[in-house]
């Protein structure tokens, strides 16, 4: 039942993350920067890990929460997560 991360459309994942983060933190989607570090706009590590859980449900994939610490912004995460050479 699990999908492969590299089958996910990066644009879809990016827009889902932006919507999720803006919803949780009350940020304006129009001015949200996907290249800012998560902690710059207040997404702390606990909230990032919760997001990983919701993302698993949404996309039917396995998300290692540590990936958010290794690639701590939306652009970098999406690129690494959906990369062809990803595990």
């Amino acid at each position: 039942m699990q999908n492969d991360p590299h089958d996910i459309d990066p644009a879809l994942l990016r827009s889902w993350m932006v919507k999720y983060i803006c919803g949780v933190l009350g940020l304006d989607i129009a001015t949200f920067s996907t290249s800012d570090r998560f902690d710059v706009y207040g997404l702390d590590s606990v909230e990032a890990v919760i997001m990983a859980g919701v993302m698993e449900e949404e996309f039917q994939v396995i998300v290692d929460p540590h990936q958010f610490f290794d690639t701590p912004n939306v652009d970098a995460f999406v690129a690494a997560f959906t990369a062809r050479d990803a595990e």
Binding site: V49, A52, G53, E56, V63, P65, H66
Partner: peptide
């Protein structure tokens, strides 16, 4: 792990 709990 704590992260497994916090995630879900």
């Amino acid at each position: 792990p704590p992260s497994a709990f916090i995630q879900k």
